[in-house]
């Protein structure tokens, strides 16, 4: 893995951290600001993917494969979340014909 490590390390680690943080923040902002359940959901996925990116970068910098294995787990569990989440969203849509989370205020906050 030597040469690959060298190449990836040509980019400073801070850049990866910064990039991931930015992507993560975009995801957070998406969750907080958007009203469409699907879009919120996609924002969450964005957050998870920024984590994946950062994990991979750390993993390569550290020369430790466990970070990349973690990425696998994140992907698998994100998939499980997708499955359940989509099912829930479809269920909501069938009951209300909308996926705007503003209609979801029958239970008061």
């Amino acid at each position: 893995m030597g040469s690959l490590t060298n190449t990836i390390q040509a980019v400073p680690l801070n850049h990866y951290i910064l990039l991931s943080t930015i992507i993560f923040s975009i995801g957070v902002m998406g969750v907080l600001l958007r009203r469409n359940a699907i879009v919120i959901f996609m924002s969450v996925e964005l957050m998870l993917n920024s984590v994946n990116l950062l994990l991979t970068a750390f993993s390569v910098y550290r020369g430790d494969a466990s970070g990349q294995v973690f990425v696998f787990f994140i992907m698998a569990l994100a998939a499980a979340e997708v499955a359940v989440g989509l099912a829930i969203i479809v269920m909501i849509y069938r009951n209300t014909n909308s996926i705007d989370i503003n209609v979801l205020n029958r239970l008061k906050w």
């Binding site: 359940a37 969450v44 957050m47 989440g85 829930i88 009951n95 239970l107």
Partner: peptide, 14 residues
Amino acid sequence: SNEAALKYFLMGAF
């Protein structure tokens, strides 16, 4: 119940 599921899901994933 639907709403609870969606809210829980979104917040949980978040």
